[in-house]
Design a protein around this nucleic acid. Structure first.
Lengths: 253, 253
DNA sequence: AAGTGGTCTAGACCACATA
DNA sequence: ATGTGGTCTAGACCACTTA
């Protein structure tokens, strides 16, 4: 039963009590919570109030709701660690690119859908690639799947000048991927930078990545530089935060 | 007005229409959306339906709601870039530690509250620090503020063996912070690793970090290793994803 | 005082999952 | 067929902000 004199809204009291029971293990991961009708009885509140409480837990990523089945404690998902080694020349030598390298390493069957298009650099692209706004870019738009589930979105942009006549402008870039083709064309990669952030997904991303409510996305903007420091490629990557962790290591200096 | 025959729920249609108008610039960042009573008229739906639509936008981080004032398009916030240089020996030499280094660099006045305690290593800490479960740890629990606003939470754990008799067990560690004291005690730092993820905040974090609805947190687990590769410290850092971006760069190999 | 969002109720009907 | 969540209504009263 909720305390009507405390000043704390009823739906927050219900949510807090359920959260406490989940944390205490009273409802284990994967377990079903009482139905909305039962919670109405238990706490003495109306259905909209119960639903507001459940929605709060949902947006916190604590529970999953399945229509017709019930409300379940969200089990922790297996986190894939992406290490910078995924971008090493060795990894490129062995297969098709960073994503497929990782997938093979973790025993996943992987595939990816690619669309290639050309566009003019906007302000952001121009800054990362150190070009003038309006410079022609080759854009590779990829949806990557592991075991049939969509796992990442990636939009790669390169100055078109670097990609003319290479397989980078084809859908299939061949073994070692874009970076291998760049190096064959004489643009050896000297260094990488990654800028990592997180935000809530757009509705499009929710659909494409099949995201549950309350799951943010990690965003990575990766820039590949040539040996003289010239930016060769920028890659905007979006991945479900529930599935990935990014690992970086470096010597102290 | 909503289309009752489309099969798309009314509150989603309202949310989609408002989102479209925001994206199109019809409501600029910071602008006030029509009041709930106005939206009821515009779309021909009940108040709970309007509120459900607004809640959806809120959980996406698109709008902020202010009681008694209205609903506003959330303006983009200034993103601080945290680069790995924040952990360099140079930065330590100049000031009190990684967080204060960053704050000074960006012109913020910064402060931090620290609590020191001792506890036994749980399974996770034991794995990161390569110790046996139950080993005694020194734990430094920090709340860091920039210009009075809470900006990050950090929980640092070290084998107590390394901290006995040092200022690391005091609230004030002195110039250069924990890492400087570790090196003075003969434990020179050889490398760092950071494991980055994101998730929705717990209710406690929402309070401490004064987070708006729809803002995820970035989580960093940083491990500092000695020159022989021994883990010296692990640091669990939580920061609002709306305020920070993490940058890493490394030479191609 | 007037306008805004915050909370809550008591229902109704629909859609999905399972037996 | 039954139980589950999904959507929606038409109110009511409260709390905060601004004038």
């Amino acid at each position: 039963m909720v305390d009507r004199t405390s000043g704390v809204p009823a739906f927050r009291q219900v949510a807090a009590d359920l959260r406490r029971k989940i944390d205490a293990g009273e409802y284990a991961p994967g377990a079903k919570l009482p139905s909305e009708r039962e919670l109405i009885e238990t706490y003495g509140v109306s259905r909209p109030t119960v639903r507001e409480a459940v929605n709060l837990l949902r947006s916190e990523g604590v529970v999953d709701v399945e229509h017709g089945r019930g409300v379940f404690v969200r089990p922790p998902s297996n986190i894939h660690r992406l290490a910078r080694a995924r971008l090493s020349r060795d990894a490129r030598g062995r297969n098709e690119g960073a994503f497929l390298a990782e997938a093979k390493a973790t025993g996943f069957s992987a595939s990816s859908n690619v669309k290639v298009r050309f566009e003019r650099a906007d302000e952001r692209a121009a800054e990362f690639l150190r070009l003038d706004v309006g410079t022609e870019l080759t854009v590779r738009d990829r949806v990557m799947r592991a075991d049939g589930l969509v796992a990442q979105l990636a939009v790669s942009r390169l100055p078109r000048e670097l990609t003319r006549g290479t397989a980078i402008e084809k859908v299939a870039t061949g073994d070692g991927g874009t970076y291998a083709r760049l190096e064959e064309a004489g643009h050896v990669i000297g260094s990488f930078a990654e800028h990592v952030g997180a935000r809530m997904p757009t509705p499009d991303e929710v659909t494409l990545l099949q995201l549950a409510v309350g799951v943010p996305v990690l965003t990575i903007t990766r820039v590949a530089y040539g040996t003289e420091g010239r930016p060769l490629e920028m890659n905007d990557i979006v991945l479900p935060a529930s599935l990935y962790q990014l690992s970086y290591e470096w010597p102290a200096d």
